[in-house]
Amino acid sequence: MDLHLKSLFGRFEEQFGSGPGLGPGSGTCLMKVDGIEPNFIKSLYKASAALYGTEPWKRLCPGHYFGVRVGKDSDWPEKKQPFPCVQFIGGDGGDVGFYMFRSENDAKKMTGPRETILVPNVELLRVTYEVESLMFPSNRKMIKTLSLEASGTDRFPVIDVTRCMPGGYLRFRNPTFEELRFVYAFMKAISMVHPLLQQVDKEGGPKFSAMTYFEPFIETVDVQ
């Protein structure tokens, strides 16, 4: 009986989380993205697996914001970087993955002490690592058909774009091909960059704070 309850609670916590995050995947599927090719999906999953292996959420918390710049502004639709601010989640429970925001201000507004706050009309791109058994059938079929690489032993990335609506609910859509190119470049680069961050002691902060501080860091990475 105890083992049954432990398994049941584990599945509930895995699916609905108990910390920062917006919950399980929305049912979006990369195969439905206009212009995408199977080889690019395979590259996305390979880069995602490499990032997962570096376990950034063990060092970084939602309060650590990464500024991201990929190429020139003119390289992207609307002549600006799609999601230039990124945070990692998962070290404190809840979803495991990272969120990409339109601005640092959006990221700060949605980051609570122990939870992700729904802010009306804020849109973000999510990459969450989910257990295959809890994924939607369309994603499980894609993983099997393309023989996609797992992250860790049994997790795979789910990528969607989420908008917080004024009514307090979430609306999801598939990312565009250009947005996926941006995510791919970020995953390739951050896998190499974040292990280089140097932790520093910061005096005068609140004693109850669990925030770890790092030296300011700027790095340029050539992603092929």
Rank of each mutant, 00 (worst) to 15 (best):
M1F: 04
M1H: 08
L3G: 06
F9R: 10
R11T: 09
R11W: 03
E14G: 06
G17M: 09
G17K: 04
S18N: 12
G19E: 03
G21H: 03
G23V: 10
G25D: 03
S26R: 13
S26Y: 01
T28Q: 11
T28I: 04
T28A: 15
C29T: 12
L30T: 08
K32M: 11
I36N: 10
N39W: 01
F40G: 14
F40I: 09
K42S: 14
S43Y: 00
L44G: 10
Y45K: 06
K46E: 14
A50W: 00
G53F: 05
T54E: 09
E55T: 11
P56C: 13
P56H: 09
R59Y: 02
H64I: 06
F66Y: 06
R69F: 01
R69G: 03
R69A: 09
V70K: 01
V70H: 02
V70R: 02
G71F: 01
K72F: 03
K72H: 04
S74H: 05
W76A: 13
K79I: 06
K79T: 07
K80H: 12
Q81H: 15
Q81D: 12
Q81L: 13
P82K: 12
F83V: 10
P84H: 06
C85Y: 02
Q87V: 12
G91M: 01
G93T: 02
G94M: 07
G94S: 05
G97A: 09
G97F: 00
Y99N: 09
R102S: 15
S103F: 05
S103Y: 01
E104M: 15
N105I: 08
N105G: 08
D106V: 08
D106Y: 02
A107I: 03
K108R: 14
K108V: 14
K109V: 07
M110A: 14
T111C: 11
P113K: 10
E115S: 14
E115R: 12
E115L: 11
T116P: 01
P120S: 13
N121H: 03
N121W: 00
V122R: 00
L124A: 13
L125W: 00
R126H: 04
V127Y: 05
T128Y: 01
Y129C: 06
S133Y: 07
L134G: 09
L134P: 01
F136R: 13
P137W: 07
P137A: 12
N139K: 07
K141L: 06
L146G: 11
S147C: 11
S147A: 12
S147Q: 05
R155F: 07
R155D: 04
F156I: 02
D160I: 10
T162F: 07
M165C: 14
P166V: 09
G167L: 12
Y169H: 15
F172Y: 13
F172T: 05
R173K: 15
F177H: 14
E179H: 06
R181I: 08
Y184C: 08
A185T: 02
F186N: 10
M187N: 10
M187V: 05
A189Q: 08
A189K: 05
A189S: 12
H194L: 07
P195F: 05
P195T: 04
L197E: 07
Q199A: 15
V200A: 14
K202N: 09
E203G: 13
E203C: 13
E203K: 15
K207Q: 13
M211N: 01
E215P: 01
P216I: 12
E219S: 02
V221M: 00
V223K: 05
Q224F: 11
Q224E: 14
Q224P: 05
